[in-house]
Every structure is written in C-alpha cells, then in structure tokens.
Amino acid sequence: MATVFKRPHALKDLSMHYCPGCTHGIVHRLIAEVIDELGIEGKTIGVSPVGCTYNNYEYFNCDMVQAAHGRAPAVGTGIKRVNPDNLVFTYQGDGDLAAIGTAEIVHAATRGEKITSIFVNNAIYGMTSGQMAPTTLMNQVTTTSPFGRKPDLHGFPVKVCELLSTLEGAVYVERVSVHDIKNIMNAKKAIKKAFQIQMAGKGFAIVEILSTCPTNWGLKPVDALKWVQDKMIPFYPLGNFKGKDLEV
C-alpha cells in the first residue's frame, strides 16, 4: 500500500505540548517537510526562542540550540559564522522577534547574515498568558491592554516585513498565513524558498507566518482561524515584499 501521508523525518515522533487549535504544530511540520525535501537535515541547525516554542528543540531531529529571549538571530549569527555550510534557522514569536529582540533581528538583516528567520506572529504573548505583543492589533484586548490597544497608551502594531524589507541585507521577505489549506501550502513554499536562498548564500531571509492563539484570544480554534482571515490579514497583508524573483 502506498504511503500518502507520514511524519517528516526531521520531526521527532513526540506529541507536542501546544494548545488545541494552535498553529505552531503546523509551522513545525512545514519546516520539517522542507528540510526533508531539500535533504538538509544533517546540516541544519535550528535556534529555539523564548516563548511558547521555547522547547521546540525537542521536536526536531536536526541539531538545535536554545537561545535567550530575542537573541536567536545573534546566536544564529555565531553558529553560521563558525560553519557557513550549515543551514541555520531561527524560530521566533512576536514578542521574541519584534519586542525584546528587535535590535538582533534588525541587525542580522542589516548585516545580511545568511540565516533564515521563521517569524510566527499571533498578535499576543502566549507563554506568559496573553499580554499585549508589539503586533497586537488596535483595540485588541489582552491582559495588559484590558481596554483594548489604544494609540495614546500603547502606540501602533509593528509591521515587521515592511520594516525589514527596507534593509539591503534582507534579500527575501514574505508574509504568509496558516489559517487554511491554500495558505498553508503557500507558507511551505515561502519557507522552502527562504531556505534555498540561504543555501545559495544570497543573504538574510525572513518568513512571517500569521498564526493563531485560540487560548489567549479567547476563541474556539475554528473561530481563531477566521479571526486571522478577518482581522489580521487586513492589517498584515500577505505576500512577498522582497526577493520573489531571486534565482536559487
């Protein structure tokens, strides 16, 4: 009997700790499928962040390094500069990448570090239980913006792809989503392209993935997917910001 669906080799046979309806698992799987398809598991090093995915180093079969909050791009820089033949990716959430680690991501991109950042944006802090993120939408209620995000008090959400695409060192910048099948397939394509760009030595690549947090959004999983579609995508438009036509 032909196998039509199986766990990618790059992913360990473990049940993940994520909440029901959380899309981190999907993103992990997409990364693992790309690693398998490119045949690069033996030379891939992943860098785990601080946040809900702090221990995703346990889920992958490639070598993994756990980094301090926000510092994954600096850690990735160190790894890549020692062994330039490795494929190095960071896995970061919105607090990790766009708040405490803003300097690190901006400067890894500025230097054109040949690493790939997988940036999971769910507009909220998950692990610490639902605080406002730099990417929290206007009027969105969180435990630290209980009356909604207001411009006078909290300022405005950060658009990471738009910001980073102004930097010459960032050669591939794309925003995708994992709220439905079509977008999941697009997300995988973007991750693959971002890895290929690194392998070709072109420069820094980032894929921002709009993702869900049903637990902290206070929504059922299916409603959370719809919230991505209805609320997030209008503010964070999907698409390629840079490097679409780069040859790899």
Binding site: V65, A67, A68, A74, V75, T77, G78, A103, H107
Partner: peptide
C-alpha cells in the same frame, strides 16, 4: 550591534 548581541553570538559560535 550591542554587547547583548555580541555575547549571544559568542553563545552561538561556542555551541558550534
């Protein structure tokens, strides 16, 4: 870009 980044680059390079 900072001392913070520098020490984390050290962390990465040492890990490698």
């Amino acid at each position: 870009e900072s001392e913070v980044a520098a020490i984390n680059m050290v962390y990465g390079a040492a890990a490698a």
